[in-house]
Design a protein around this nucleic acid. Structure first.
Lengths: 259, 259
DNA sequence: CGGCCGGTTGACTAATTTCAAGCAGGGTGG
DNA sequence: CCACCCTGCTTGAAATTAGTCAACCGGCCG
């Protein structure tokens, strides 16, 4: 959902990937066993034979262009989706038709779990840039969990984490001012990148300023101004969507994360 | 969590209760089979024999005084809790020690699901007034779900709904102004009461103005002023914590729920 | 009785939004 | 190839909403 200080990631996620270099990261047909997302995604503490079974129900290799929907609010719910590459946003429409972004999702994360309760998706999911996702048909998946308690546990944990992350977002919206929100946001992205063995200090924001503001409960103008100010204060370097975090500690202070 | 326009409740929830009038609503030892919460809580689409099994693991009859905690953030997670009577709030502390209320919970609802992911509760739950809860040890419960697919499905749905409700709260905090937030809040409580066959128009707010403001991202003063204004405009009648909704439609308009 | 807490109300302040204008980059069509 | 336009972003100035500070009220408890 994007808003967690803790990394759920595993530093050695790519150890296994190295062992399987025959599977190119852009080979969308690669199996769960070889997937470079490793345990970030679903397969956790499963025997290889179990993973094979899981493999059989996962529909791999759905490719999305920027702006394509994975699913839309009110669509019948049948699957959850693991993001293999690219970035995705989820959003809902308010009563008066405005978009409210409820989360940004990174590779290895799972979207669509809010559709379970009413058998209908409650939000829409859309690719921020070209992306690839694995579809996990929920009915079959659920059957599998009955045979594989670890898999069930893992999915409970995924959902539970989603709840926790939404709660953090609630807290941010309720208590933090514009500066704190944006600093927190940047640090969150940084942490998530680190969890994926990507640079924690240099990265490209996959969303527009408008989307950032929408997610953080701010106007574009406020986002723009605040980022400019951070750059002027040399907390970050800013070049369009490219961000370098220069002064992590000061940024943490601005975010009000420690002290 | 409190913030859903839809009722998950069932109007005939008390039909069964009537059949079992030997079980007084204040008899905390009553079994799940007879519990007047009926399907609002967990037992859904289960055979009576299954309910008996569920019954065996549920620890009924924990009584709480106002201010007592059900669990605290950072406590080891071992159970989720169904509220049998009374009202409960959940909250987390921000980095600088302030309380952020993340939800108000009504009888029949379940708290503690955010503790699953890290085996530690991520929030605290506290009784707003005297209350009674049923403890559901999660490990045993999970074992049960492996044998009872319907029970598993129901729990997935509960968690999914929690996610949906947090998303609605996010939208409220991000997009609505003070008036809209408070009107929405009142209507939500009204709907939840209706779902429990209680009056949709006359009820007592179980929380203080401060707690309301905290939950809605507003100060006490703003809450107080806005409620006073609603009363002056005769949208509601207000007497301390007692509220009567006088003009539902106008209130809906103010909340920006239809149009 | 005094003090404290929760709630209300008023006056002032400050933060963010709103409105407005301008700029840069990318794509399209003449 | 250039002009034009559109979109996304930035920046400034004015407007507005909610927050802050402060005083006061009433009920409850020691």
């Amino acid at each position: 959902m994007l808003l967690a200080t803790e990394h759920s990631g595993s530093k050695n996620a790519d150890a296994k990937a190295k062992q399987n270099e025959h599977s190119c990261p852009h080979n969308h047909a690669v199996s769960c066993l070889d997937c470079r997302m490793g345990k970030i995604c679903l397969p956790v503490a499963l025997k290889d034979s179990d993973i094979v079974e899981l493999d059989e129900i996962v529909k791999r290799g759905r490719i999305l262009q920027k702006g394509d929907h994975i699913f839309r609010a009110a669509d019948a719910f049948s699957s959850v989706y693991a993001i293999r590459s690219g970035y995705v946003k989820t959003y809902r429409l308010t009563e008066d038709g405005e978009e409210q972004i409820t989360g940004f999702y990174f590779p290895g994360e799972v979207v669509g779990m809010d559709g379970i309760s009413k058998s209908k998706h409650q939000s829409s999911a859309k690719a921020l840039e070209s992306a690839a996702v694995c579809e996990i048909p929920f009915g079959q998946f659920q059957n599998l969990t009955l045979k594989m308690p670890h898999l069930q546990t893992h999915f409970f944990q995924l959902m539970s984490q989603e709840i926790t992350e939404e709660q953090q977002l609630v807290t941010l919206l309720s208590k933090k001012n514009a500066e704190e929100r944006i600093a927190t946001f940047l640090l969150t992205i940084s942490a998530r990148n680190a969890a994926r063995s990507m640079s924690a200090t240099n990265f490209r924001l996959p969303m527009s300023r408008t989307e950032m503001g929408n997610f953080l409960g701010l106007t574009v103008e406020t986002v723009s101004r605040t980022l400019s100010r951070f750059a002027k204060q040399h907390l970050i370097d800013l070049n369009q969507k490219e961000v370098s975090i220069v002064e992590v500690e000061k940024l943490r202070l601005t975010a009000n994360l420690d002290s």
